[in-house]
Amino acid sequence: MEKLTEQSSRYIALEKQSVGTLLQQINQEDRQVALAVQQALPHIEAFVEALVPRMENGGRLVYIGAGTSGRLGVLDASECPPTFGIPADQVMGILAGGDGAIRKAVEFAEDHVDQGWKDLKAIAINEQDTLLAIAASGSTPYTLGALQQANRHGLLTACVVCNADSPIAAEAKYPITVLTGPELITGSTRMKAGTAQKMVLNMISTTVMIRLGRVKGNKMVDMQLSNHKLKQRGIAILMEETGLDSQTAGCLIDRYGNVRRALEAI
């Protein structure tokens, strides 16, 4: 398999470039990412259409990956409960090497082909759930092994990869391939490939939550009001939706602790 993400950078002698030149070159490469994601929109749409009814019936969305890919899954999953007010386990991120690998790389964690499924069994993965494998290379053993077992156990499976004709894409029922090409630093997929993966995960989780009714109009009415800024945002939403003054809206937010419940009470 030819790995576009591993091909040599188009740029040379980076260490001799000025800061301004380096920034311009990185920005030039990053401009291509959204266009690459656009090409994958039909595949993203097909996956979301299959995912939503499963989550409506109680299934979970589980991301799995290693290194940057796995960390991006953990990040997206961790942002869903405060943003959309869902249970902490409805969207989950599993990372090769465990939670400790979020901050510090765990050597060879991605090379264990059986460990991914063991980690999934630890969260009681079942056939109602959906597994989304994330791997820039499309061939990470940890992620591929988990995907293979998930298919054998009847889960809905998908992937986000950045190389064509990859083993992981061949295994996933809903493959999403975003061809971001060579990186500025050869093989450093934390750059364009990572940006593309973050964009796709944002698109998936946001669209799913909208379809699950977790957004009203364009407002986060189910967000967790866990700090002063978010409480003020909740008050502003309530004022805009109802025409109430700030004091009355604030009292309702304090009483119900949630924008949606306050709106329903009104």
Results as ranks from 00 to 15, higher is better:
His153Gln: 15
Gly181Met: 15
Asn163Met: 12
Ala101Gly: 07
Glu15Phe: 11
Ala150Trp: 01
Gly145Pro: 04
Leu131Pro: 03
Ala249Asp: 03
Gly116Ala: 03
Gly154Leu: 08
Leu23Lys: 09
Glu240Ser: 13
Phe84Val: 02
Ala150Pro: 06
Tyr142Lys: 07
Val33Tyr: 02
Gly58Asp: 01
Trp117His: 07
Ile185Asp: 09
Ala77Val: 01
Ser18Met: 12
Leu252Met: 13
Leu4Trp: 14
Thr180Leu: 07
Asp165Thr: 12
His112Val: 13
Tyr142Gly: 06
Ala77Gly: 02
Ile123Ala: 08
Leu179His: 08
Ala88Gly: 10
Leu263Arg: 05
Met199Pro: 03
Glu15Trp: 10
Leu252Arg: 04
Gly187Ser: 11
Gly67Trp: 13
Ala164Tyr: 11
Lys198Gln: 06
Ala66Asp: 14
Glu127Ala: 14
Ala172Leu: 09
Ile64Thr: 06
Met55Ala: 01
Glu127Pro: 09
Ile26Phe: 13
Ala101Val: 09
Gly243Asp: 15
Asn227Phe: 05
Gln128Gly: 08
Ile12Asn: 12
Arg211Asn: 06
Thr248Gln: 13
Gln224Asn: 05
Thr180Val: 15
Lys3Asn: 10
Pro82Phe: 02
Met220Pro: 00
Lys192Ser: 12
Thr68Leu: 14
Thr186Trp: 08
Leu244Tyr: 10
Lys3Ser: 10
Met1Val: 14
Ala124Tyr: 11
Ala40Asp: 01
Ala34Leu: 15
Thr248Asp: 14
Leu41Pro: 00
Glu183Gly: 13
Ala169Trp: 04
Leu212Ala: 00
Gly100Gln: 15
Ala96Asn: 03
Leu179Ala: 07
Val215Ser: 02
Thr207Leu: 02
Ile237Pro: 01
Val91Gln: 03
Asp30Phe: 07
Ile204Phe: 02
Ile204Val: 15
Leu131Val: 03
Glu241Gly: 05
Ala135Thr: 12
Ile176Arg: 00
Arg260Thr: 11
Glu241Ala: 15
Ala96Gly: 03
Met203Gln: 05
Ala196Gly: 10
Gly100Ala: 15
Glu79Arg: 02
Ala36Thr: 09
Thr130Gly: 04
Leu155Lys: 04
Glu171Lys: 08
Leu120His: 07
Gly194Ile: 08
Gly67Ile: 12
His153Val: 07
Pro182Phe: 08
Met92Thr: 09
Ala40Ile: 04
Arg261Cys: 04
Leu230Ile: 06
